[in-house]
């Protein structure tokens, strides 16, 4: 079962790589775009730190870790999550989701892996550069445990982002045109570039529990700095799993509605 799905994932990745190789100019365009976005992601940080040493308890190097992680997640989002799920929206609009539903394999899996933007690895490389520079600023590298926790949180954050997207896309079964929802999602995600302690009151609550942005960038940065508590790590992983479970239920319900009610 698992082997079969891994093989399907491999074939889809291969197809995306073939496609990427066909459009080599995309490599340069994506590279330029990646540099542009990474820079714009850093500018607010540079502005804020121009005349102060700390921001809500974070030094420049530490806050840069958060921003680097934000760029990293953006790369994952644009390279692996967005393209496949944008494909679902297209399928629903064109009525070709029928072909997916007739395949003897899980439909959510098939659509999720249907497209990858391979050239987005440039964004990941850039994020690596930013993180490296941040550690240079801080003056020491992360511990092994810190790295391992950060890797675990990266997986949790990816699952979380993916689940949020599945929820957004599920809405497409009801309203067909979800462009606005995806814009809303990206603008909320944008807040993840700041350490979560920057936000106060209601916003902080929302960004920790409703749309857990803290988990996506602040906690991994804290983990790398060796400041994250073990319980927070456990809760984050459990929270991501719960989110994934909920998104799966909603997806199944939406598919059920698609086949039972629509034409």
């Amino acid at each position: 079962m698992l082997v079969r799905y891994l093989r399907l994932l491999w074939i889809q990745l291969r197809a995306s790589a073939l496609l990427a190789a066909q459009y080599r100019s995309d490599f340069f365009i994506d590279g330029v775009i990646a540099i542009f976005w990474a820079t714009t992601a850093l500018i607010p940080l540079l502005v804020v730190f121009r005349d102060r040493q700390h921001l809500a308890g974070w030094t420049f190097g530490e806050a840069l870790l958060v921003s680097g992680w934000f760029v990293l997640l953006n790369g994952v989002l644009d390279g692996a999550i967005n393209p496949g799920l944008q494909a679902v929206v297209d399928h629903i609009r064109k009525g070709t989701l029928d072909f997916i539903l007739l395949k003897p394999a899980d439909a959510q899996f098939l659509v999720s892996v249907s497209r990858f933007e391979v050239w987005r690895v440039t964004t990941l490389a850039l994020a690596g550069g930013i993180l490296g520079y941040a550690f240079h600023q801080i003056g020491h590298g992360p511990s092994f445990f810190g790295l391992a926790s950060a890797a675990l949180l990266l997986a949790a954050a990816t699952v979380l982002l993916y689940s949020l997207w599945i929820l957004t896309v599920s809405a497409a079964f009801y309203v067909v045109k979800v462009d606005n929802l995806t814009y809303l999602f990206s603008s909320i995600f944008d807040a993840a570039r700041w350490p979560s302690s920057v936000f106060r009151g209601a916003l902080r609550f929302v960004f920790t529990f409703v749309v857990p942005l803290a988990l996506m960038t602040t906690y991994p940065a804290e983990a790398l700095l060796g400041k994250l508590e073990g319980t927070t790590l456990v809760y984050s992983v459990l929270g991501a799993a719960a989110f994934a479970f909920f998104a799966r239920r909603v997806w199944l319900r939406s598919i059920g509605r698609y086949t039972s009610a629509s034409s």
Binding site: R4, R7, L8, I11, Q12, A15, L18, L19, Q22, K94, G95, T96, D98, F99, K103, P104, A105, L110
Partner: peptide, 23 residues
């Protein structure tokens, strides 16, 4: 009126994908 073939890739890629899906 509708198609399942991968638009930007040769049909042989869709065949290969279906081979894997249908085992």
């Amino acid at each position: 009126q509708k198609q399942q073939l991968l638009w930007d890739l040769p049909p042989s890629e869709t065949f290969e994908l279906n081979r894997a899906i249908y085992e």
